[in-house]
Design a protein around this nucleic acid. Structure first.
Lengths: 360, 360
DNA sequence: GTGGGGTGTGCAATCGGTTGCAGGGTGGGG
DNA sequence: CCCCACCCTGCAACCGATTGCACACCCCAC
């Protein structure tokens, strides 16, 4: 008859103890260290507890153990389609480790992000910061306090999951070259985004090697409107193909091009990033894949392992001077582990042979 | 020098008290009821606390006050683009009321939903259940315990926010009729979804009044694949236009139609729902708007007001029999408030005049 | 000068679980 | 037959903050 939804009113460990005619300690132990009790007692207590609909009070438990059973994930914008799959797989993984997850949306603001973290910190055991806009110093400060896993931010000594888009980016440039494009445009993302930095760098390097020129067009917050509004700049640049920071921006570009009567891919080629919306639209977008879901799962796994290692989380060597021993950012076992997720190009319908002089 | 990110180590109220040479009670009151203390004392305590980097321990506070400062939002699938804007505005609103929000993803399963709720219940003050798949009984059971706000689920006596798509749906049918379509298909959503029920009903009623026939095509979980795979059934039905449960399904349909060489809107008209992806694609989707963001904000507002009303939340009249006094489901002030959010049709590029016999 | 009222602060109990330590009970070995 | 050991359970302190109650103090009026 017990409620399947947890506490009905306020069944405490004391109530269970009274009903089972044992002490409160015994009830507590029946849950936390059953091996200390006789099987019969455990059985009896658990049955009684179930009958009464007892559910432990997390706050009280946290007070004595210092463990909350909660983690937090902070994202710059949950409405950006890159994050929901990430959050989703993170949450599912956390659930199976019996962790509850707080969600924080920083609205792309470093300041809000700091406030959120401060608000959440006293009741979570660890953080997953996805594409954090926070300063390196503040992140390190936080990481010195409790386990932190970064997603798409590369800070030496702090556990992180990086979606390495250089692979897919390189393929994209090579494909465009093969299709005869000479002049590319890159629709950039937020300057404080690690992903954007990586894409910019890769693009510059690979294009140079391939003998192509690439024009960088700044757009503020990555959005549909930003993409649409930058079409003028694209046209001005004389590019015959563009690579966009993400799929949302790409969609905006697509719309902007259509308005101008420039057809894709006949007149212009477009490559997105993240594979979030790409498959959903027509023409389907050629894009650089980016397993956001696997990144979420990896981040959860990483954080959970940090939580299990007793005194982990604390940044490897506090302020120990000396340039970091340069053995790259590889999996170091615990504190500074780094998981890289590879990407590749998914060719769909927005890329085709360059048509000389069309957009000039 | 204090950290801007919250607790550094474990500064307790006792530490502050010692440093400020007052009692722990005084420190506590300096934060919670400063008017009871002399201004000088308050000032002194706050300064000391700041210097030490003191941050109250939520768990301890919750234990004595019974208030956690947390709420939970549970959704069936955060990766479904309808929910992120909702969650986002909810979180932003909660933040300004200094509430932290837990996110639960039930993965479209009633069972998982119940487990999540049970897990979260002991540490939240209230719930927002968006499109819950849970049985009515369990929801009522929960609502008897603590404040609950439903989104897109209509349970008398429980606070709820309903996105009323009948307005937009009606407009859609009338538009299609005006364009000369006679035979419509409806790509249905999950059977236990209130939204789907409402759309089905409205569609049936309005179509009948307008003298159109509508074929209902069941699709399981609303997804791109479901939409794509149901194109065969659409063609078989002889419909010249379709209305889909949501935009994701619509995109699938769009893709499926393209594969078959049926062009939209020339050969076939399509209307989506929710306006989540609609603007992002080309051709831009004609769709029924649905302010998910305003729903999130409304839900937050409702829940916050319930939390402020001392003994609210508890279902109005427990099991008092008798059919509900039929004054409709209007705003009743507290417990059973009902906010309806209107919808309208947004005409974009996927609807056009019917071309007789094309799809037959 | 002393009693009364008001204000500001401290004491101690409390919230619900956890856990070190001690004690009661039983069984086995000497 | 007794003693010891071990296993199980209970006692009580503790986690950190809140809060009812009481008291000390000050000022003013009688």
């Amino acid at each position: 008859m017990a409620s399947r939804l947890g506490r009905v009113a306020g069944v405490t460990i004391g109530d269970v103890a009274a009903a089972a005619r044992v002490s409160r300690s015994t009830v507590s132990r029946a849950f936390t260290r059953p091996q200390l009790l006789s099987p019969a007692t455990v059985e009896h207590v658990l049955t009684t507890a179930a009958r009464l609909g007892y559910v432990g009070n997390q706050a009280a438990r946290a007070l004595s153990t210092g463990r909350f059973g909660n983690i937090a994930v902070v994202v710059p914008d949950i409405a950006n389609p890159f994050f929901p799959p990430l959050v989703r797989s993170l949450q599912l993984a956390a659930e199976s480790a019996d962790l509850a997850v707080f969600l924080g949306d920083s609205d792309e603001s470093a300041e809000r992000e700091a406030k959120l973290i401060a608000r959440l910190a006293p009741q979570v055991e660890g953080f997953v910061l996805a594409s954090p806009r926070l300063s390196e110093q503040l992140i390190r400060e936080l990481a010195a306090t409790r386990p932190v896993v970064l997603v798409n931010r590369d800070l030496d000594g702090i556990a992180r999951v990086l979606i390495d888009s250089s692979g897919g980016m390189t393929e994209a440039v090579l494909l465009l070259k093969k299709l005869g494009h000479q002049r590319l445009a890159y629709l950039a993302g937020p300057r404080d985004s690690w992903s954007d930095g990586q894409r910019r760098t890769t693009l510059a390097r690979v294009s140079e090697q391939a003998g192509l020129t690439v024009e960088v067009i700044e757009t503020g917050r990555p959005s549909y409107a930003a993409g649409r509004d930058s079409v003028a700049a694209i046209v001005r640049s004389g590019a015959t193909a563009a690579i966009a920071f993400d799929d949302v921006v790409s969609q905006g570009v697509l719309a902007g091009l259509e308005v101008r009567g420039i057809s894709v891919p006949a007149d212009f080629s477009l490559v997105g990033c993240d594979d979030t919306l790409a498959a959903l639209t027509s023409p389907a977008l050629t894009t650089v894949s980016a397993g956001a879901a696997s990144a979420g799962a990896a981040a959860a796994k990483l954080l959970i392992s940090l939580l299990e290692t007793p005194d982990s989380g604390r940044t490897a060597a506090g302020g120990s001077a000396g340039p970091a021993p340069g053995h790259g950012g590889d999996v170091g076992g615990a504190g500074g582990a780094c998981v890289r997720i590879g990407t590749h190009l998914v060719v769909r319908g927005t890329t085709a042979v360059a048509r000389a002089g069309v957009v000039t």
